[in-house]
Amino acid sequence: MALLRPLPLQRPAWLRLRRHCQLCDETTDHPRHDICTACEAELPWLGAHCQVCALPLPAPGMICGACQKKPPAFARVEAPWRYAFPVDSLITRFKHQAQWPFGRLLGELLAEHLLHAYDEGLPRPQALLAVPLARRRERQRGFNQARMLAGWLSRALQIPVPDDWLSRTLDTPAQQGLDAATRKRNLRQAFVVNAAERVEGLHLALVDDVLTTGATANMLARLLLQAGAARVDVYCLARTPPPGG
């Protein structure tokens, strides 16, 4: 008499782990992230933008007037989104309310964007550098959102994040809401490169949450190039639209 093999136990559907979209709270079948395909499609993807600073433009493949008139120190900005709803709200909740899961979700999606860009020919940097915060501001906030983003990118991209190559020596006023000229004045002598001998000849990428005027990124890129870096790119979550755009 043939023995019947017991059927494998099947977990009831209600016991299986269900993942929910962080934006709409509906169940998601996304293979990697806690966001549903509908919400992901509705994010404010950058679209046509300046090939240098990623400023949103009306047509692809162009370089904005500001970059043509005075090219920045950084070579290229990579950002998946415009700074618009709901990405702006998610960044605010991550940055100012310590809701880290939103930052991690956006960071993981940024990593996917960068991996695709590498496949399309974007040169891969040798190290990621988080834009530093002043010590007082970091103590008040409890963390540096750029450093957290850099850490998530590092794990996904397999690129190291040296933690002590850049520091902020002056606690300048917050840049948010200031015009470009005031931002530049704030940043004079605000940063220092601590590892000039280690950056020499390297391709580096600065990591931050949002690029607005680009003054901070430009200042840091200039300092790194002066210290001997071969190239500096900028990786961020979102790019602000032009004034009135």
Rank of each mutant, 00 (worst) to 15 (best):
L57T: 09
P123Q: 02
P8V: 15
P12M: 03
L110N: 01
L57R: 11
L187W: 08
T182Y: 03
V77Y: 07
W14F: 09
T169D: 08
H116C: 03
P56D: 02
V210K: 08
T37L: 12
R231G: 11
R135C: 00
F94M: 04
C36K: 00
T240M: 00
P56I: 12
R18I: 00
C53M: 07
P6E: 15
Q51H: 04
L7V: 13
L166M: 05
H116G: 05
M148H: 08
L220V: 07
A84F: 14
A48Y: 01
R147M: 09
L223S: 10
L206V: 10
R198F: 12
L23Q: 04
Q145M: 05
L46H: 04
Q68K: 15
A150H: 04
R11E: 11
L225V: 10
A111D: 06
T37W: 12
A150V: 00
A38C: 09
Q10W: 08
L178V: 00
W14G: 00
Q22Y: 11
E200C: 08
G61W: 10
A84Q: 15
S154L: 04
P101D: 08
S167H: 06
H113D: 12
W152E: 14
T182V: 05
A54V: 11
W45S: 01
T27K: 02
L3P: 01
T182W: 05
C36I: 14
P242C: 03
G121H: 03
L17K: 03
A190Q: 01
G214F: 06
I159G: 11
L110C: 09
A54S: 11
V77E: 00
A227F: 10
A146W: 06
L187G: 00
P60K: 12
L129H: 00
K69F: 02
L23Y: 10
L149A: 11
A13P: 06
R18Q: 15
L237G: 10
A215H: 07
L223E: 11
K70A: 15
P72Y: 02
R32N: 07
C53W: 05
A75M: 09
G142D: 11
Q22R: 12
P60S: 14
I63C: 15
R104Y: 01
G177C: 10
K184Y: 00
A111Y: 03
V161R: 02
L4Q: 07
N194I: 02
A84E: 15
A79M: 09
G228D: 13
G228A: 13
P71V: 03
P125E: 11
E138P: 03
E26D: 10
T216C: 04
L55T: 06
G201L: 13
A174S: 11
Q97F: 13
Q10I: 12
D88G: 08
C21V: 10
P125T: 05
F191G: 01
A190M: 00
Y83T: 14
L206P: 02
A127H: 04
K69A: 15
A48V: 10
P31K: 07
C53F: 02
P31E: 14
M219F: 00
G177H: 02
E138W: 02
L114K: 05
P12N: 02
A238E: 11
C53I: 08
G214K: 06
V52R: 13
Q97Y: 14
L109Q: 06
R124Y: 00
A156R: 15
G65V: 15
A134W: 07
C21Y: 06
A217L: 11
E120F: 02
F143R: 13
Q175P: 00
P160S: 04
D34L: 12
R168Q: 09
